[in-house]
Amino acid sequence: MIGKTIISLIPIVFIAHVIHFLGIFSASLEYQEKYSDCEYVQVKGFDSVGPEDSVFYNKDILIAMQVNLHKIFQIESLETAKKGGFYAVYGISTGKLEAKKIQIKNYPDNIIFIPHGIYLRDSNYLHVINHSFYSGGERVDTFKIQLDEKGEVTLEYLHYTQMDEKFNGITNDIAFLTAERFLISDWMVFPAPLSGPKDQPAWQKVVTMIIQTLKIKTTYVWDCTYVQGGLATCSKLRNSAGIMINGIAFDGKDTIAVADTADRQIKLFRLNNSNQEIDLIQNLSVDQLPDNITYDTVNKQFISAGLNSISEFLTLTPKIEKIQQNPTKKSIVDMEGRVHTIKLNPTTKQFESQLLFSSSKAVAGLSGALIDESQKYLFLNSFPDKSLVVCTRRS
């Protein structure tokens, strides 16, 4: 009798898991007390769709990657997909924002460039995850940042390290602890085919959905050594297992924050500078699907951004053309995104999360956020929208 009761409860439990995983009943929230008036950063003469990730080069310049990740992973074959690049936003310190395409020097013509996570190291080097698929596998490319005679950013390609084929198409974000040591996340259960994500077998997609819905932890942070021109050596970071490990941020000193998107959780790690070991110190729950994480050096805090529900993400594909061809200055699609600050409480010695911004109108597919040095601007990244979005601090 008890066995039959338990068996009869299995479908109910599974349905409950599905509802929670999709966030179908997640409460919407509009919170723009600190930042509002969100608009696309105006760009001319080049494709700015898909600014998934960005970094500040200095107080006046922001570097954003650009690639149509949603179409590449959900809709298009690699042969029809537009390849990626970068653009810079200038004039941040003066309030006269202007976006321009960044020239890349010496990049190999035979390697497809589909950037994902990026990391600025030592103020001069940009490390970039590149899903180059059949043209070069999974790579981490390294560029040197230079300023030309006009004070504008150019990138000079230097070298790469190859990732093992088990990472193909599924590495997501990256953080360098030294010039040779980096952390990288894999966010999906199965690697993508070399021919591109569109050719992923249907059974793998179904199994992935079941695993994520049941909250089975199959993705990790990997602790890797950069081997120039060769295969990076990587091992799983202890206690980093998650359902959908995603964004990584490093404070440059001893603290690392990692997002588990599907588990609505931020993992905090401590780097022991004496022996270089990395230990999990806290699991912090948040009321968002945390995607990318950045570190705010001015306020000594991490900034986490992401969607409110997976169910909204699943409605994205039919709207993609409307989103990316929107002729107005503001987003016209309802898709809630939330930004949280994560800061250490000096009394409790625990990290705490606080809502900074929430809106269903600001941007479609929120993936990350940055606050400039003056605190005047909140920049919002996204994986499918037509451009970077900037919100202005309320007076």
Rank of each mutant, 00 (worst) to 15 (best):
K101R: 12
E156R: 01
G230S: 14
E156P: 00
L380R: 07
G45A: 02
L366T: 13
T297A: 11
N58H: 06
T154V: 15
K267S: 15
F73L: 06
V339E: 04
L307A: 12
Q354M: 06
I256R: 01
F176A: 11
Q66C: 02
C234Y: 04
I6F: 14
G50I: 00
L194D: 07
K349W: 03
T392W: 04
A232N: 02
Y107F: 15
I332H: 09
H20M: 10
V128Q: 06
Q288A: 14
G137S: 07
D260G: 06
L9T: 15
I278N: 09
F379S: 01
K322T: 12
Y31G: 00
P193G: 00
S132T: 08
T154K: 08
K205T: 13
L271K: 04
I266G: 12
F302E: 10
V390W: 07
P327V: 02
V153F: 09
L183F: 09
S36F: 01
T261L: 08
C391P: 08
T219N: 05
T218W: 06
Y157K: 10
L78Q: 06
Y160S: 13
S185Y: 03
S285A: 15
Y57W: 09
I293M: 08
T94P: 02
F351H: 11
F250Q: 09
K144C: 05
K105R: 11
A232P: 05
C234E: 04
I266V: 15
K144F: 07
T317Y: 02
K361M: 01
V206N: 05
F182S: 04
I266M: 05
W187V: 09
Q324V: 00
D279Y: 12
I243W: 03
Y57F: 13
Y125L: 14
L289F: 15
E312H: 07
S304T: 12
G247Y: 08
G306V: 02
L237A: 07
G85Y: 05
C38M: 03
F269C: 08
F25P: 03
P11W: 08
E33P: 02
W203R: 11
D279L: 09
L158V: 10
D254V: 05
D173Q: 07
L97A: 04
T5K: 09
F25R: 10
Y134P: 01
A362W: 05
K300E: 14
L284V: 13
F176W: 13
I145T: 11
Y35N: 04
A241W: 02
L316D: 07
D37A: 11
I245K: 08
I170L: 06
I243Q: 11
M244W: 04
Q375R: 15
I216K: 09
S358Q: 04
A249K: 08
A99D: 04
V286P: 03
P384F: 10
A99W: 01
G252F: 10
F176T: 11
T178V: 06
Q212W: 09
A259Q: 02
R238H: 14
L29F: 09
Q350D: 04
I6C: 10
I118H: 03
E79C: 02
E30T: 14
D37R: 03
G50N: 01
E180D: 13
R393E: 13
L97R: 05
F46N: 01
S353L: 05
D251H: 11
I24Q: 08
E180Y: 09
